[in-house]
């Protein structure tokens, strides 16, 4: 019965202060929209970065003068690393394979025909189970007799380190941004509801006069905030859904672009879950915003 009364009071207030209620709703809408656009983008970037990180591999070049026995010894050494779990996979790339790959990569392969002989060394391409294992793998094979003296071992040490740092940075920057967005949204909605409370401060005064407890006064305002937050969130989700279906999905299915390849499917947040998160955030924003703002008016 009381909840019904609070609800009626909240609706009465929304109707009485229609302009302010619309302002609060639009504020919630913008906040939730930005949040809703940011969360999937952030998760996409994060998955793209981690996809890049997993691509760190080690190339061990083999000297042209190495004997078959030496090459087999090296292969066994790497095989042991695989048994240890440091290496996920490794492949042998012969001199001919290397040349063929080069030919495929070049825009004008005819330049290779000018070569008197194949200058490319054979190699083992090693994929570590974890980018962090790259150093240990390098340490294990770096003095091997079969190694090409000039090329030796090539692996993107700095790239790997940078990617790992970037992945961490993206993660923390993302969380910080989401936090800042939430705080800004709470303050914005609180400020808008402050207008509503200010317009009704006489009412609050009368409530206190007739002996209303602070929670009794607070409930209708908080329900008002939740309603504005919910409506704003639902509209924002509808807009996001429109953008997802109309723009993102069409673009993703249309072209087999590099971007869609790098962003793994597991990295994107499912839309229903995003909806739940955003609508919850909208309601919470409204409640917290009005709750915080009311504190000032409820002293004494």
């Amino acid at each position: 019965m009381r909840l019904g009364m609070f609800f009626r009071e909240a609706l009465r207030s929304i109707r009485a202060n229609a302009a302010i209620s619309v302002a609060a709703t639009v504020t919630a809408l913008i906040a939730v929209f930005i949040l809703g656009a940011f969360i999937p983008s952030f998760m996409y970037v994060r998955s793209a970065v981690s996809a890049q990180t997993s691509k760190v591999d080690v190339d061990v070049y083999i000297s042209d003068t190495a004997s078959v026995k030496q090459v087999n010894a090296l292969r066994d050494k790497i095989g042991t690393l695989k048994t240890d779990g440091q290496v996920a996979e490794f492949t042998y790339v012969s001199k001919d394979d290397a040349l063929r790959l080069m030919r495929e990569r070049l825009r004008d392969p005819s330049v290779l025909d000018e070569l008197p002989s194949n200058p490319l060394p054979a190699k083992f391409n090693i994929q570590p189970t974890d980018p962090a294992n790259a150093n240990a793998i390098v340490a294990a094979v770096k003095d091997d007799a079969a190694l090409d003296p000039t090329e030796g071992i090539v692996y993107p040490q700095t790239t790997a380190d940078r990617l790992l740092t970037a992945a961490k940075f993206v993660q923390w920057a993302g969380f910080a941004l989401i936090g800042i967005l939430l705080v800004a949204a709470v303050l914005l909605i609180g400020n808008t509801i402050r207008l509503s409370i200010f317009a009704r401060r006489r009412e609050v005064e009368v409530m206190r006069l007739v002996g209303a407890t602070n929670w009794f006064i607070r409930w209708p305002f908080m329900i008002e905030g939740v309603i504005c937050g919910l409506v704003g969130a639902v509209v924002a989700v509808a807009m996001l859904w429109g953008i997802k279906v109309g723009v993102v999905d069409a673009w993703a299915s249309g072209a087999d672009t590099a971007l869609t390849k790098t962003g793994s499917a597991g990295g994107a947040i499912a839309f229903p879950l995003l909806t739940v998160v955003l609508v919850g955030a909208g309601a919470l924003l409204g409640a917290v915003g009005s709750g915080i703002t009311l504190r000032r008016f409820l002293r004494i």
Binding site: L209, G211, N214
Partner: peptide
């Protein structure tokens, strides 16, 4: 917290 009851 008891002030409202006084006012009633």
């Amino acid at each position: 917290s008891k002030v409202p009851y006084l006012r009633r």
